[in-house]
Design a binder for these strands. Structure first.
Length: 581
RNA sequence: GACUCCGUAGCUCAGCUGGAUAGAGCGACGGUUUCCUAAACCGUAGGCCGCGUGUUCGAAUCACGCCGGGGUCACCA
């Protein structure tokens, strides 16, 4: 149920009616016709721009069109009144029964209320986290993980068939560094002193890897050269780190459907095949790049390379796919990986990357555009930095000073629910402040608490009603006499509930899960406001002493709000609480 | 220099892909509790939506150009 699309259908029908009668010309493009809630509540419940949008193509003044449409809209039983205002807005006031019916519909549909068919069952791949398996996950990864997971849940709610995927960067030089670092820890475990040279990973998180290596290999690798153990240790260490990463994701409530390995692409011919596809389109050539202007490159030297003609698909310069030593650049396996995703039949791809990868966006879009023949859109969401604070003071993260903050640190201190919600209180391309103390504060300054508190209040009043002998099951509440919900404040609450499907739609269309968090805050605010009005006006209390019928109707409204809060929190991956403690 | 994101109240930020008199929180000031959780609510003050041009019935929103800030920029991922 979506009131806005329902009303839009009504408007469109009225326009078509006028066309059939020759009042309006045929063949009008109606896609620009919208039905929205007016900002000003005094203007009514719904407003449409139909008359203004159609004025020019129809060759009629907007107010004339509006005057012709108004009576047809008013004839609908859902419409209480219609008036034409301003340059040609048609303001519609809905009958109270519409809002009462909405509350009933929410109770009947439960947390499925607001689901949309936007995705139409199409397959979308959301790739996120994709951290190198060289160390523990830190705060920087948390935001991307939460964002990706919430986006996946949102898209599923909006009717997409979602696959969550993690691309393991285990093919480059970094895992060799990992292996060498782990080898030193292995030597340490064998009683020797490790030589953590410049360029190796100094973190003590590799000590357990060294010990595990000793348990597996004993002393047998001690006197051997790198060529003897590098590949084995690389696999061993990265596999071990991946297990840790999976564990970290799990405590944050994130699970992946597919793990894809970069290393697994090598030696299979997949990289060569993907490049060949591009070559067949004349998008691969040997050439020399110009040095970047305005940037001082001391060691720049012109160099003949194998290049991808990404400029043919919107990039600014062509990009190398092969290094001067003939090996692939990091870009090449990534091309092959995305080609693999296209071949697996996804209708849309989404990559979630750190903002420092912004320069990578155009070339990857160019590659996907070329490899899919323009069929598969790739949306890349860049996640900005998280700035840590403690008691309002910036908290600097430094591996050397031992103030390296891991994902596990954050979740253990703040809890997964709080962490997830807070990470979604900014849109992805804005930096986010995360204050360890404020996120745990129990006040309205803290949006997580604020929303949870609203839910707790709903549960509280439902308990009270239940204790008074009222059936508060959804079925019973849906069957209550909802005509008792007539006060403007109550209708306002229902109006906010009507926004939910619309909001889901917009959020999913733009891949912006943060909108869910903001909406929940507004919804909670409405609930708290209505709740407190009961202080002055006893008739607005949800629980009406001695009047079960009215109480049931009011509880129905509260419960419907709770249902939407639960649905919204579900998309964010946050567990609703029943009581505050 | 190029690309990209950002610029909205004193501060932190929303703004539904063009709508009517631009919103919320914090901070400031003033109120609300014999009453379902005052862990909350209500009110007041506070704006050249960075600047300019264009597109049109209509621009914070779209296009272009400036100004200011962040990020990135071949043979690392």
């Amino acid at each position: 149920m979506n009131l806005f699309t329902d009303l839009r259908s009504l408007v469109v029908a009225a326009v078509q009616d006028l066309q059939a009668q020759g009042v309006l010309p045929g063949g009008l493009d109606l896609t620009a016709v919208t039905v929205d809630p007016p900002r000003e509540a005094g203007h009514g419940d719904m407003a449409t721009n139909a008359a203004m949008v159609l004025a020019k193509p129809a060759g009629m003044p907007p107010r004339a069109i509006a005057e012709a449409l108004a009576p047809r809209l008013a004839a609908d039983p859902r419409v209480a009144s219609v008036d034409v205002a301003g340059p040609g807005f048609i303001n519609i006031r809905l009958a109270p029964s519409v809002w009462q019916g909405l509350v009933r519909a929410v109770l009947e549909q439960g947390t499925g209320y607001g689901r949309s068919t936007l995705g139409q069952g199409r397959k979308v791949n959301v790739e996120f986290v994709s951290a190198n398996p060289t160390g523990p996950m830190h705060v920087g990864h948390v935001r991307g993980a939460v964002f990706g997971d919430a986006l996946a849940r949102l898209l599923a709610f909006a009717g997409w068939d979602v696959t969550r995927e993690y691309y393991i960067n285990d093919g480059g030089a970094q895992v060799d560094v990992l292996a060498r670092s782990a080898y030193e820890r292995y030597r340490e475990a064998c009683g020797l002193s490790p030589e953590i040279r410049e360029g190796l990973y100094p973190g003590d998180y590799l000590i357990p890897v060294g010990e595990a290596l000793k348990a597996k290999y004993g002393d047998s690798l001690l006197d051997k050269g790198e060529q003897y153990w590098l590949a084995d240790i690389r696999d061993f260490a990265s596999a071990m780190k991946m297990e840790e990463i999976k564990g970290d994701l799990a405590i944050l409530g994130v699970t992946m459907d597919v793990y894809s390995s970069e290393k697994a692409l090598y030696g299979t011919g997949k990289i060569e095949a993907a490049i060949q596809v591009l070559r067949d389109m004349d998008l691969i050539y040997e050439g020399t790049l110009e040095p970047p202007k305005g940037k001082t490159n001391d060691d720049w030297e012109p160099r003949q390379q194998t290049l991808f003609r990404s400029t043919a698909h919107g990039d600014d310069v062509d990009r190398p796919v092969q290094k001067s030593d003939g090996g692939w650049t990091y870009f090449a396996p990534d091309i092959a990986y995305h080609y693999d995703k296209v071949q697996r039949g996804f209708d849309a791809l989404i990559d979630i990357l750190g903002a420092d990868h912004g320069g990578y966006v155009k070339r990857m879009k160019a590659a996907v555009s070329a490899l899919s023949g323009g069929r598969v859109p790739l949306d890349i969401k860049l996640i900005q930095l998280v700035k840590l604070y403690k008691n309002g003071e910036p908290f600097k993260m430094s591996k050397r000073a031992g103030t390296f903050v891991t994902l596990r640190d954050v979740v253990e201190q703040a809890g997964a629910d709080v962490t997830r919600f807070v990470m979604l209180t900014r849109k992805n391309d804005a930096t986010l402040d995360f204050d360890f103390d404020k996120v745990l504060e129990q006040s309205k300054d803290n949006p997580v608490f604020y929303v949870q508190y609203a839910n707790a209040r709903i549960n509280s009043v439902m308990r009270k009603a239940r204790d008074a002998g009222i059936d508060v099951s959804d079925a019973a509440l849906a069957a209550a006499d909802l005509t008792k919900l007539a006060h403007p404040a109550e209708i306002g609450m229902a109006r906010q509930l009507a926004e939910w499907p619309r909001l889901v739609d917009v959020a999913a269309r733009n891949n912006e899960p943060h909108r869910i968090a903001f909406y929940l805050y507004e919804l909670a605010s409405d609930l708290h406001g209505l709740w407190n009005r009961g202080n002055d006006d006893l008739s607005l209390r949800f629980f009406q002493e001695g009047d079960h019928a009215t109480t049931a109707a009011k509880i129905a409204l509260a419960r419907a709000t709770g249902v939407v809060i639960a649905a919204g929190l579900g998309i964010l991956g946050v567990t609703p609480v029943e009581e505050m403690r």
